[in-house]
Amino acid sequence: MALKDRKKILTVMIVMALVGLFTPFANDFIRLLITQTLVLGILALSVDLLLGFTGLASLGQAAYLGMGAYLTAILVDRFQFGLGCDLSLILLMGIAIGAAGAAFFGLFAIRATGVYFLIITLALGMVVWGLANRWNSLTGGDNGINVMMRPNCGVDFSNDINFFLLVYIFFCLSLTAMYVLVNSPFGRTLVGIRESETRMRMLGYNTWLHKYLAFVIAGGFGGLAGVFWTHLNGIVSPEDVLLPISVDALLMVVLGGAGTLVGGPIGAAVVVFIREYLSTLVEWWQYILGGVYVLTILFLPDGLMGLMALVKTWRTDRSEKEGAEASSGQVR
């Protein structure tokens, strides 16, 4: 088991190292796509913590991305704050506002389970969207807020390579943090709750508190993704907090495989590729996106990561069968 885990970690590390080495030399467009994938990947990680490890399907994760994104944009726009080395403060504040938002919303949401949780998080997402859309004096309403400049603190992040590296570093940190988290006793308790909340409660665990903390942590990661989201796009608008982003985030995780951590970012890569790249080639790209979702849910309940496992068992099955046939031949 430990050996297998080590092998998996090594694979992920190699892949991430390759991404880090290759991307600075890729062309501008590809680099942009990869950066976007990593930002959404952080969001997907937060969804996976809830869906894959706690068994809570959140359909409002864009709310926390939105909080981080609007905070960043408002501070830059009003106070020119966060354009220098104070970026590090912004990152902390982004995490804090996402976590604080989730801490508040969680009071309402955590009581609900299953489909009800899905609906209440959707409703909470709509509350944030409603505020973003209508509170003109703060959020710029429909038009959103333009952020023309990226921060410059010795390293100039308006250079796309530097910005990529920043996002890349934080993605790797997030992935590591999540890995440590889900393998900690806290994370194992979450999985226990996913499997049987009643049983965990009987064993004396405070399941409400565990779910609540997971929700808050997920909100923090969402807020972090939001900070990058604003600087990546140069604009934040109510569309960024709207239902489709939340839906996307959830589907990325389902697509990649819930409860695997790396599944979410892989799903993010697929979605970004279809949305941004394929859409430049064919006009009916949304059929592909919709089709991929439908087929994944119908035939790959464990997502793309499940597909890999499926191929592996199929291969071992076959080699075992061949082995069995060979040995039976010898007997004859």
Binding site: A57, V247, L250, L251, Q286, G290, G291, I297
Partner: peptide, 13 residues
């Protein structure tokens, strides 16, 4: 849950 996600796919289509 899977059924709900499936309906999202259809909404996109």
């Amino acid at each position: 849950l899977r059924q709900v996600l499936l309906t999202v796919g259809f909404a996109l289509l």
